Simulated scan of single mutants.
Amino acid sequence: MESSFEIETRTVFDRYQRQQENDDHIFDRLVSLIEEDYFGLPTGSFRGLDVLDAGCGSNANASYAFLDKGARNVVSLELSNDWMDCARKRLSRFGPRSELVAGSVLDLPFDDFSFDFVHCAGVLPHTRDPKKGFEELARVTRPGGSFFLTIMGTANGVIYRCINHLRELYQSDEQFRSSIDNLDASTAREAIDWLLRTKDGEEKEYIPGENEFFRSLFDDDLFVTIRDRFQAPTYHQFAFTEVQIRGWYGECGFEKIRRISRYTKNFHNLRRFLAPMYRHYDHPLARFWFGDGCIQMIGEKPST
């Protein structure tokens, strides 16, 4: 049985994931994150596999990517069934290879060893028992299969400390909450136009094209991310470590456990300048801003 907290979280995510589905640039950027070489696999490795996309989100972008790369069958799992109409818009082209299932990662409705590849990105911190969810995902991974997890690390960096504080402010301050809820590319464009117009009234551009460049740092993709960080409630904030997650994999019998990272491409906003720190999460600058960062790990279950 899902808690009211988990249902509330799903409702928040549904709003912005539907917006992502309606924006081809955002959707295509998210789909591009699923690449074999990122997981340390040869090109074509997803062909013929049974894949679970656990906590797929309303737009099921990772499910789309696995299917597009030739997976035999992809099960997209999310709470309730209110998200399925959104997911079907993209996934219907794959016919019976795509299956939508209502369920929780805390009690997966699948037999042991059901999937060759299990994918779960950013879901467990929004559940009442992340460790139980991890064990359920490990349970349904087949011998010889792989389990990939994304989970936010301990908030000991400047940006995540700020995010946690502002999330609390969002919950307690009506004016701040209204500002975040109304934040999108349109309202930001009005504010930026006012800012630059006022600046230009006092002094002209110091560097040719600086106004255009400044505008380019902000788009709806960025504001969807910001709203996500503040609006989504969380049980556990950012309270996980790499050592802890490695331990979970080991306890569940996984081998070849690796932390992986990527240079996230195709941002058209400020996050382009953060991408080097996403890739090199252990650099001192990345540690300063992001602390333990986004922990992305993969492990293999030994063949029997």
Score class of each variant (00 low, 15 high):
Asp111Ala: 15
Gly48Tyr: 06
Phe230Thr: 00
Val158Thr: 09
Met297Asn: 03
Ile192Phe: 02
Ala286Ile: 00
His268Pro: 01
Ser32Tyr: 07
Arg88His: 05
Glu174Ala: 14
Glu300Ile: 06
Val74Asn: 08
Tyr64Glu: 09
Leu217Asp: 04
Arg246Asn: 08
Thr43His: 14
Asp111Lys: 14
Ser216Glu: 02
Glu99Tyr: 04
Gly55Trp: 00
Asp112Trp: 05
Pro96Gln: 14
Ser172Ile: 07
Asp50Met: 05
Ile7Glu: 06
Phe218Asp: 01
Asp85Cys: 03
Ile260Phe: 12
Tyr263Trp: 10
Thr241Gly: 13
Cys86Gln: 03
Asp292Ile: 00
Asp200Gln: 15
Pro284Gln: 11
Val105Gln: 00
Ala62Arg: 05
Glu2Gly: 04
Ser98Asp: 11
Asp219Trp: 08
Ile151Asn: 03
Lys132Tyr: 05
Met1Arg: 07
Ser303Tyr: 07
Asp282Gly: 03
Tyr235Asn: 11
Gly40Tyr: 11
Ala121Pro: 02
Cys120Leu: 06
Phe46Arg: 12
Ser216Asp: 06
Phe94Pro: 08
Glu8Asp: 12
Leu137Ile: 06
Ala275Met: 05
Arg161Pro: 00
Arg93Val: 15
Glu210Leu: 15
Gly144Tyr: 06
Arg287Thr: 04
Asp50Thr: 09
Phe288Tyr: 12
Met277Ile: 00
Phe273Glu: 10
Gly145Cys: 09
Val118Asp: 03
Phe214Trp: 11
Glu210Gly: 15
Tyr64Asn: 12
Gly103His: 06
Cys120Tyr: 04
Gly70Ser: 11
Arg287Cys: 04
Lys132His: 13
His268Asn: 13
Gly299Lys: 03
Ser4Thr: 05
Asp23Leu: 15
Gly293His: 05
Arg15Tyr: 02
Gly209Glu: 13
Asn266Met: 08
Trp289Gly: 02
Pro208Glu: 15
Ser63Arg: 06
Lys204Asn: 12
Pro42Lys: 13
Leu106Thr: 04
Glu202Ile: 15
Pro130Leu: 08
Asp181Ile: 01
Asp219Thr: 09
Thr234Ile: 05
Leu195Pro: 02
Arg215Ala: 02
Asn269Tyr: 07
Glu36Thr: 14
Tyr38Phe: 15
Val123Leu: 12
Gly253Ala: 04
Asp184Met: 00
Leu124Asp: 01
Leu137Glu: 01
Trp83Pro: 01
Leu195Thr: 14
Pro96Leu: 15
Arg93Glu: 07
Ser92His: 14
Asn73Phe: 12
Ser114Lys: 11
Asp129Ala: 10
Ile34Met: 07
Phe117Met: 09
Asp282Met: 10
Arg262Ala: 08
Arg161Val: 04
Asp228Lys: 10
Val224Leu: 12
Phe5Gly: 01
Asp24Cys: 13
Asp111Pro: 10
